[in-house]
Design a protein around this nucleic acid. Structure first.
Lengths: 139, 139
DNA sequence: ACAATATTTGAACATATATTCATATAATAT
DNA sequence: ATATTATATGAATATATGTTCAAATATTGT
């Protein structure tokens, strides 16, 4: 199963190697490297996707979207519910809004926030399953 | 539709309000706050879930797991494929390993990394759909 | 116009973190 | 044992980021 091992070249660690220039880089499976480079997701997509995961990767923001998953809420209610400053909530809501993960609706002076992206709900559902199974398996 | 608006109390911003002490916090919909508090996901689960999203929220780590989604790979191949230092890859693989998102298999001196969590693949698939639809909708 | 409320925003500070460099460990071969 | 290879790790540095505080908007009511 390891018969396709081709030792091509050997060098110490060298940062700053351009994407297209493989010469001088240590690698073991040239075929796998070539294939994975072909299939690689373009950088701008990686950046966007990473941004989405990152924005969900903060406990405060995650609590906010988890709350909004259940119901529409205004800023001060969110703050009260989560035990946070309204300013902190507003700052995080802006980040969520910048990525179009939440939208808002004005009613007088009150702004009601809700989820704006179907994918987010999916991600949160899978995430929930994940931690619940973790609880039962490794807890 | 906004008839259940109950204005209870009004105060300037006050941080450090304990989770159980609502008195003195500005809120508009007391019922929603109470309900969302009841349904709130426990903190330790939020922390775990946020950690998982966060670890996927870095471009380098996201590239790594996206690559591993397609095939098993060793460190130096990953480094060559992604144009990174082996050290940088190794550091990030450790973070992914700490959260049990990837596992490794030794064959001689070579360590082969692969995905370790079914949920991760799901998250990545949904994420892919997300950015692809974004491309077609807003691009 | 003025006051009050709900939310937003910018600056500042403290903390987290990704990469680099140098070094250490683990496995293999001579 | 020694050398070589593959990977891991610790310290350092530069950058990113979350919260707070103070002040600015926006909306409504008087």
């Amino acid at each position: 199963m390891t018969s396709n091992k081709k030792r091509e070249d050997h060098h110490p660690q060298r940062p700053g190697v351009s994407e297209e220039d493989l010469c001088g880089v240590r690698l073991i499976h040239m075929d796998r490297v070539a294939l994975s480079r072909k299939r690689a997701i373009p950088d701008h997509k990686i950046e966007r996707l990473a941004s989405m995961f990152k924005v969900l990767g903060d406990p405060t923001r995650l609590k906010i979207v988890m709350t909004l998953r259940a119901m529409e809420m205004c800023v001060c209610d969110l703050a009260a519910s989560l035990g946070l400053t309204e300013s902190a909530v507003s700052h995080q809501l802006r980040r969520l809004r910048d990525l179009a993960l939440v939208k808002r609706r004005r009613e007088g002076q009150v702004l009601y926030y809700s989820l704006d992206d179907a994918h987010v709900s999916e991600l949160l559902n899978i995430g929930n399953r994940h931690v619940n199974e973790q609880e039962n398996t490794q807890g």
